[in-house]
Design a protein around this nucleic acid. Sequence first.
DNA 1: GACGGCAATGAAAGCGCTTTCAAAGTCGAA
DNA 2: TTCGACTTTGAAAGCGCTTTCATTGCCGTC
Lengths: 348, 348
Amino acid sequence: MKALSKSKAATIYEVAQHAGVSIATVSRALRDSDLVTAATRARVRAAVEALNYTPNQLGRSLAEGRHAANGIVFPDLTGPYYAEVVLGYEEAASELGRSVLILATHRRRDAEAAVLDLAGRVDGLAVMGNTVGDDTVRAIAATGTPLVLLARPPVDGVDTIRTRNERTATALADHLVAHGHRRFVFAGDPEAAPDMAGRYGGLVKALRAHGLPKPELRPCAYDVEAGESVGRELMADPPDAVVCANDEVALGVHIAAEAAGRSVPEDLAVTGWDDVLAARFAGLTTVSQPMRELGAIAARWLDGRIGERNAGPERAAPRRRVLPTQLVVRRSCGSHPAETPNPLGGTA
Amino acid sequence: MKALSKSKAATIYEVAQHAGVSIATVSRALRDSDLVTAATRARVRAAVEALNYTPNQLGRSLAEGRHAANGIVFPDLTGPYYAEVVLGYEEAASELGRSVLILATHRRRDAEAAVLDLAGRVDGLAVMGNTVGDDTVRAIAATGTPLVLLARPPVDGVDTIRTRNERTATALADHLVAHGHRRFVFAGDPEAAPDMAGRYGGLVKALRAHGLPKPELRPCAYDVEAGESVGRELMADPPDAVVCANDEVALGVHIAAEAAGRSVPEDLAVTGWDDVLAARFAGLTTVSQPMRELGAIAARWLDGRIGERNAGPERAAPRRRVLPTQLVVRRSCGSHPAETPNPLGGTA
DNA sequence: GACGGCAATGAAAGCGCTTTCAAAGTCGAA
DNA sequence: TTCGACTTTGAAAGCGCTTTCATTGCCGTC
């Protein structure tokens, strides 16, 4: 009885023939149009069942003139940061009836081409951080594909969402100064990403306000190994505090310090950024960000832009948004007498 | 000079007209066919530039009869496990010239429908763990879409890749018994996922082989909070060792134990699974898995299947593969006198 | 009893591209 | 000079669907 054809998927024509109707009727029946009789609809349903028919989305999308899919471009997926953003994006997008295409640009040289290709497969695209240059962003924007930039420097005419870096970095620095720290190192590369520049900038500004010298800059990559490497170098003459560009680097510095027989925070303070799970267990003072929300807002903005685009040419002005971040104080920045008894906890 | 049209993207017809050739020639020029003169190709290129033309991938895919895209279905993206698998998948797929569509099924009730829809948008699909039932898998397989199951019970006729659970769980249990532990608890739900069943099964088998009683089973979700909750309950009468289904749970148990004034591993041993970054900082004995490789192999298998499918009906037998996992011994399972001096390290 | 109006269906035109097949143009050899 | 072989280009069919527009059949109405 099972009429599974060899391998080729059934088309709307075969369903129509099997049900004894035209393809137009099949299409309408499947889209729940009220233009078909209940009886006809039933016949079509039966044919669909019998042939195990699934509509070809390419045909459908081509006819409708929409992909019903959004894309997101990010450097990597290791570490919770990008993964959470992507998850928030996917969740919001799929609620809006859109599939999500992903593209990781790290470890590929043809990133720009890959992003352009991706742009041709979606109705809207989110571009994160340090992935492609402004030229590529402008080229995509020029084709009319709605775009939103995440944690990335703005480009004229394109929506941008970022998280607060500078102000929270200043707050972090104030806290460290209050602990009595005076000689600072910043581990991370302000040139590498705008987020990092903001964090460094906030630190510099705060130190200046306190009449302290500029932090020593130690550019490095953003993983544990890079942090360990920087940490080892620093242990010859440890500073009071090492402010790290993210948690992975901070954890690396932490490891290097302990390996060198120094303890955190007694001998030196270490802070990170992102509030990864490990930060809690390392007692790392850090900053938490609304990552999922970042992704979700991007998806919703894009949906709005896609709607506008179909509505007419009157395009609203580009939007900017900065999401708040929160200092998470734990052990690693210096002793807190009034601390909660649970050494693994954290206080915001 | 910039002739950016209002908003509508240019089509191949406009490029053809602008270059004074037919659309066939434009198509050939863009696909680097050697059937076009260098001069013609240049004219076409110029027109493409002038119009800021990007080929519509829908039209292309429809004509070619392929999506040039693969899908992957997973429950969630929090925690490194799924994220790493997805990343490995994306990397391999994009090397093979395929885009990647993702779908997270957690916190949505219409998962089955969403997966079916996704299946219609891709040339091949990877389905992870506890996302959709066998019926859905079979329905997709019946349409002819190549499928590979990851960390999930096999389905007749469908390729499956898993990581080793039972044997490594047995090795872990042996290790714990060698430490002198006798009374065991398993925190996690063997019913929830086949991976978990394997871990539990390996533990049971090992204890039986040592003539020890079955472990006490504490079903729970797979996050830190669930672990804390189980941990709190256990602290009334702590067992010798708590073998947890994954690292998050283990870290939760760890937190609960310390909060109750018990120390790990002196008062009780705790082990996890996955080797997340935090495990290193908590000194957690755990098991590492080749997550990226899991994803990468899935992408390559799918590519192969898609090739076969286009080649002819002779379909190779379904493949099964089990990837090895590795015990990572750290502090939390009991004292190791000969341990490396770096307390944060781990030994395989 | 003829006719207007409405509900259900079908025919056919696209959506933007690839690719087959035919036509036109080019060149060298007889 | 003419012919055949080859190269380059164009016309048009089709990929699987949605949707407009036309058609059919049916009902109630005057």
